[in-house]
Design a protein around this nucleic acid. Structure first.
Lengths: 152, 152
DNA sequence: ACCAAATCGGCAACCGGTTGTCATTATGTC
DNA sequence: GACATAATGACAACCGGTTGCCGATTTGGT
């Protein structure tokens, strides 16, 4: 790569700026989207991680699934316990590390939001082909892998 | 949209998750990338906003250019002033709102990082065609516009 | 069974960013 | 020129997240 390729570096650079912008747009939009259900983007994602796991999980398991840290997950878990959306269950395999699962209320809230989100995502996607969306996701996955490879 | 389109909503949903993941990957990578120059991702972005403006800017102007808030920009400006990478100039048009411009040191640091970044972006982009990167950026811009339109 | 190493929860501090408030300064309208 | 309104800087509080530390527990190797 002695000769830099301005077009290519410019295109990659453009994409990264788009990613930063969309990230903040999506977070702000998500906070408004789930506000009627008394959630935030962060708690929505937390409920999703537990719901998709299919079974109660320990705090470190949830953190790993979300790609965040144990302490960050525990902050949100504590808040969701207070809200009654999560419940701690005895963990036979670990005395100090309970399993956190959705309460009936938590499952109901998540299902309600999930259905609304699916309709919204379909509406956003309506003007482009499924192929376009999948192609974009593939490019992003490629970039993600390049970065991960560089982290050694 | 009575009949939801699972494929399409799934594709959009996948893309949003990719965006969240890439955002955190890029921020973490950026912090490491500019650490040798005693910068962080946030301060790098701030220097870029001022450099691309081409002339010293007031704090609210910089904030608008970065798509963030006045207060957030001022936090970083204060730190960059302490580091000697920014300097405040008298603003003839406004007594209390100085113009912030890069110091020679700030310009040198930014140029050094910019050149390294361009090479890195080209390397990341090498395995896909410029057309692919541009197509992905177009899809992201489309999604960004959809969200913005919904914000009323 | 023992013991070193890894894991876990809890706490505190920090980072980057947002929101809200207040006093001060510009701006625009009459 | 006077005056309501907007813009600005400063400060504080908060949110979501990370890092670092500590003591307690669990795990794994011997």
């Amino acid at each position: 790569m002695l000769e830099t390729a301005p077009d290519r570096s410019q295109a990659v650079s453009d994409l990264t700026l788009q990613i930063f912008q969309l990230n903040s747009q999506l977070l702000a939009w998500g906070d408004r989207f789930v506000a009627p259900d008394e959630l935030t983007s962060a708690r929505w994602q937390m409920l999703g991680a537990i719901a998709l796991a299919g079974a109660p999980q320990t705090a470190p398991q949830i953190a790993a699934r979300m790609g965040t840290t144990r302490q960050g997950a525990q902050k949100q878990i504590r808040l969701l316990l207070e809200d009654g959306l999560l419940a701690a269950h005895e963990n036979a395999a670990h005395m100090r590390s309970p399993l956190y699962g959705l309460t009936p209320q938590g499952a109901a809230v998540y299902e309600r939001v999930r259905a609304r989100w699916q309709a919204q995502a379909a509406a956003w996607g309506a003007e482009l082909s499924v192929r376009d969306w999948q192609a974009a996701a593939r490019v992003l996955r490629h970039l993600s892998a390049e970065i991960a490879a560089q982290e050694q």
